[in-house]
């Protein structure tokens, strides 16, 4: 049932997916949610996934990126000016 996996654990799992795909595929919020539901079935809810993404971002472990669509990425040094 939903709630069996903690939000912290989900965030860790999501971080793993983002790190694994870094540089190859930009993960969207929906991709991460789908990946978690595929892995844990009804042990997780969409709301759990939302909370986990919020934790991932609020903690600074991941950041939002944008190239034609929003994605969740590893923080990088700013791709600034130079």
């Amino acid at each position: 049932m939903a709630g069996e996996i903690s939000v912290e654990q989900l965030a860790d799992e999501m971080y793993g997916v983002v790190a694994e795909n870094a540089g190859m595929k930009k993960m969207k919020a929906g991709d991460l949610t789908k990946a978690m539901i595929a892995k844990f079935g009804d042990q997780v809810s969409k709301q759990d996934c939302k909370s986990a993404i919020k934790l991932l971002i609020d903690s600074g472990r991941c950041v939002y990126g944008y190239y034609g669509g929003s994605s969740i990425e590893l923080p990088r040094t700013e791709g600034a000016a130079n």
Binding site: G23, K25, K26, G68
Partner: peptide
């Protein structure tokens, strides 16, 4: 190759 995801670019 470094900046862009090829499948996303193709699909765009």
């Amino acid at each position: 190759g470094n900046l862009c995801e090829i499948p996303t670019t193709v699909a765009s």
